[in-house]
Design a protein around this nucleic acid. Structure first.
Lengths: 78, 78
DNA sequence: AATAAAAAACACATATATGCTTCATTTTCG
DNA sequence: CGAAAATGAAGCATATATGTGTTTTTTATT
């Protein structure tokens, strides 16, 4: 018996993509690498990448720790 | 054999609670019931309640549809 | 008080965000 | 160019947000 596990994760949501772009722009303009941001926010590096690429739909708490790590108000991320 | 499934869901995160309060205030000032807001946002009524009570950590897409339903910019929810 | 409306609480299945790890690819810089 | 750093990508386990109901409690109205 063969088992397949196929996860296709394409977020069509423009809001999610826009958030990722905004996050990346802010991070780069702050001069941080993904790894540094991840450390500041205390979330996995892989998570930062997935969020920036718009692959996942981040939760409010993720958004919050990222804003804090970037030292901006949450509003600035939108 | 007895099986227990115990889910204790207490969100200590002040950001999540603050978001819930803000959402509720905006909804009430708009004169909508939870049910009306849920219909506008096309999400379950139960979800609106859980978010307002700060029981769950909403995703960006949930935040987005709620903002749209309330006809405000996402920033207004923070 | 009685009724209706609204909100809370509960249960449960499913989808998916998160956390962690490893490897591949791209970029940067000597 | 070659090495190092940065980012992308992938796999997997677990926690939890979501979706869909039902039932109970609270609030509002007459």
């Amino acid at each position: 018996m063969l088992h397949f596990r196929c996860v296709i994760n394409i977020k069509n949501d423009e809001v999610i993509k826009a958030f990722g772009r905004r996050l990346r722009d802010l991070r780069i303009s702050t001069g941080l690498s993904q790894e540094q941001l991840a450390n500041e926010a205390e979330i996995p590096l892989s998570q930062v990448g997935r969020i920036e690429r718009g692959e996942i739909n981040p939760t409010l708490s993720s958004i919050n720790v990222l804003a804090k790590a970037l030292k901006v108000d949450i509003k600035e991320l939108f």
